[in-house]
């Protein structure tokens, strides 16, 4: 039988998946992002509803406990997302510079 917190968590993952689909429909998420986040939240729902499932996967990777496996995956995912975010920010910063530069030069040449 599921505990109260498990029910709440699983409901939350349903909410998260619906939010992902909504963002996809609004054009805010690409196909790759949509698939990634849906798989991610389904995995979270399975891990919460059947905690022993993580122990089984952990055993395959020869990691002692299921919770350790989840912890390692979470850390790796977070680092990857931060990395991706950083690259995105840098790319946007370069685009901003390009716009600022073009405008500044245009104004200078026009005022000559």
């Amino acid at each position: 039988m599921l505990l109260v917190f498990q029910i709440i968590f699983v409901l939350f993952t349903f909410f998260a998946i619906s939010s992902v689909i909504k963002k996809k429909k609004q054009g805010l998420l690409g196909p790759k992002g949509t698939i990634f986040w849906i798989i991610f939240w389904i995995a979270v729902a399975i891990a919460v509803a059947w905690p022993e499932s993580t122990a089984k996967i952990a055993k395959i990777f020869e990691i002692g406990r299921g919770v350790d496996f989840v912890f390692y995956i979470a850390i790796a995912t977070l680092f990857y997302l931060i990395f991706k975010l950083h690259i995105k920010v840098e790319t946007i910063a370069r685009d901003v510079t390009k716009v600022v530069r073009d405008k500044a030069i245009k104004e200078t040449l026009n005022n000559k």
Partner: peptide, 15 residues
Amino acid sequence: IRHEINRGQGASLET
């Protein structure tokens, strides 16, 4: 040539 937003020395040199 005036940048409207501060972009850094590298950006200024390329401008």
